[in-house]
Design a protein around this nucleic acid. Structure first.
Length: 494
DNA sequence: ATCGGCTCGCGCAA
DNA sequence: TGCGCGAAGCCGAT
């Protein structure tokens, strides 16, 4: 195996077409779609490797289209925050950067093809997230040069999860056997500081005239997003996308949240959750970097890994209780979501739920519901239950719901709709529209869990059947909700 | 406050 | 074939 194809041995790189690389191209093109970061990124490593080997400049093409469902000021702003950083970060090291913000539907058509026409090789992000599979299909249709997809989604290469896993327990056992092999396969922490690249000298006017590059900082600071054909009712929040905000949040969590993580994470007031999921979703932050920070804080080495592979959560890593609890989220549950998304690309389909859950839900589909609400009523937080309404208001305003309350939020949608199919549609619509970390495999895991996915049977009850139920009354006893209700209660809020 | 029962699918030991 | 086990629950008994 030659050095050029070294990464393929790890199962993260795959060729999307059978075309050869071109030696007379102008540059190596990295089409950045899902892994939107300049650090800890296998795809960027791969693109740099090609550029160095071929002695060509590197061009990073990062588009933001308006044609995707749920495009809104909130989601656009998050991605633009990252693009602003990429613009300055790449200019410093002589790497070309083409940030393209599509001004109207279809305006970006043909741009990828035009850029690829002058490329030696095209590298893009491999990912099952949201519409990335459609982009990969488009990349595969490029016939001008070799096109590769590189998976930088998580600690486990997507290609390694070759079975369907029904429970986290089962998947954890698989990880306990598999991860030790792949933990050394981390992307470079700062690849651009050591790269030896020919400086990028610019694109031909024929390209930049037809598709003017966006200036993300100006879009954010001056023009705003008002002129774009996106959902303006879902406003940007105070949350900032991009690597530097992610990095700051990661440091804060490692220093202040990790040791209290397992004991206080269900308390909405304690504020010890990591809050990293949206950055992970947009690709602004790498699970590898998060893992690396946790291991440093714990003074951990792989020698501390337990030799047991029984699927048990306790004592797997040989870290503190807080770190083990957090890694179960970051590694077990996040990787399970991705593995599941690869096996089942249409997780929004009711039929993908486990058979036992569907059959028990069907038996109880005709049970009388105490309340039934429409999507419009849920959207407007107009149920009889102030705790539910508060959770929905937090989602609409801030793009997130507190960990524990989001479970209650979903269980009540199941309880207050005529059929679990309707509940699934409503949860997906609200979550994908408002949540910063929506449209992600992990969102679908969470929503699926509401309807029984990755869970087991429980005593049979009305409407829920054998699917686990939750009640607002029990939640009020278990979780301190007073402050939460004050913040997100009816009337004016911040 | 704490405990057991309820309930499902899977892997593993036998 | 039986046993143990599991993302966060609920209910009733003690």
């Amino acid at each position: 195996m030659t050095d050029a194809y070294r990464l393929e041995a790890s199962g993260r790189t795959r060729a999307l077409n059978g075309v050869r690389e071109r030696h007379d191209g102008d540059y190596v093109l990295y089409w950045m779609t899902a892994t939107r970061r300049l650090v800890w990124n296998h795809a960027l490593d791969r693109a740099i490797e090609h550029a160095e080997r071929l002695g060509k400049p590197l061009l990073v093409f990062e588009p933001l289209n308006v044609t995707y469902r749920w495009a809104s000021e909130r989601l656009h702003r998050a991605i633009l925050d990252g693009m602003v950083e990429h613009e300055s970060g790449l200019a410093r090291v002589g790497v070309g950067y083409f940030p393209y913000v599509e001004p109207e539907r279809g305006a970006g058509r043909g741009l990828l093809r035009a850029l690829a026409a002058r490329a030696c090789v095209v590298v893009t992000d491999d990912s099952p997230v949201f519409f990335t599979p459609e982009l990969l299909a488009a990349a595969a249709r490029l016939e001008v040069c070799r096109v590769e997809a590189v998976d930088s989604c998580g600690l486990l290469p997507l290609s390694r999860a070759d079975r369907t896993f029904v429970t986290a327990f089962q998947f954890r056992r698989f990880l306990q056997r598999t991860l030790p092999d792949v933990l050394g396969d981390a992307p470079a922490a700062a690849p651009l500081t050591t790269a030896h690249l020919k400086p990028f000298t610019g694109l031909p006017p024929s390209t930049t005239e037809r598709w003017p590059a966006a200036l993300p900082d100006r879009l954010v600071a001056e023009r705003g997003l008002a002129h774009l054909p996106i959902d303006h009712s879902v406003a940007a929040t105070n949350w900032r996308g991009g690597y530097s905000a992610a990095r700051a949040a990661l440091r804060r969590f490692i220093e202040c949240g990790l040791d209290r993580y397992s004991s206080e994470r269900n308390d909405p007031d304690a504020n010890v959750t990591s809050g990293l999921s949206a950055w992970l979703h947009f690709g602004h932050l790498s699970a590898h970097e998060v893992f690396d920070e946790v291991t440093r804080a714990e003074g951990w080495t792989p020698l501390r890994l337990s030799s047991r592979t029984d699927g048990s959560r306790r004592g797997w890593w040989g870290m503190s209780e807080g770190a083990e609890g957090f890694l179960d989220q970051l590694v077990t549950w996040r990787e399970l979501g991705f593995a599941n998304a690869v096996r089942e690309p249409a997780l929004e389909r009711y039929e993908t739920l486990p058979a036992w859950a569907r059959s028990t839900l069907e038996v109880h589909a005709s049970d009388r519901r105490e309340y039934v609400y429409t999507l419009e009523q849920f959207t407007a937080a107009e149920t009889h239950d102030e705790l539910w309404n508060a959770a929905q208001r937090q989602l609409a305003r801030e793009g997130t719901i507190h960990n524990y309350l989001r479970m209650l939020w979903g269980k009540k949608v199941l309880e207050w709709t005529d059929h679990p199919r309707v509940a699934l549609d409503i949860m997906i619509e609200l979550n994908n529209r408002y949540a910063l970390d929506g449209r992600d495999p992990n969102s679908y895991s969470g929503i699926g869990w509401i309807l029984g996915r990755f869970d087991r049977g429980w005593p049979e009850r009305s409407v829920y059947g054998k699917v686990r139920s939750m009640s607002s009354a029990a939640t009020r006893r278990k979780v301190r909700v007073e402050e939460y209700l004050r913040r997100y209660g009816g009337g004016a809020g911040d």
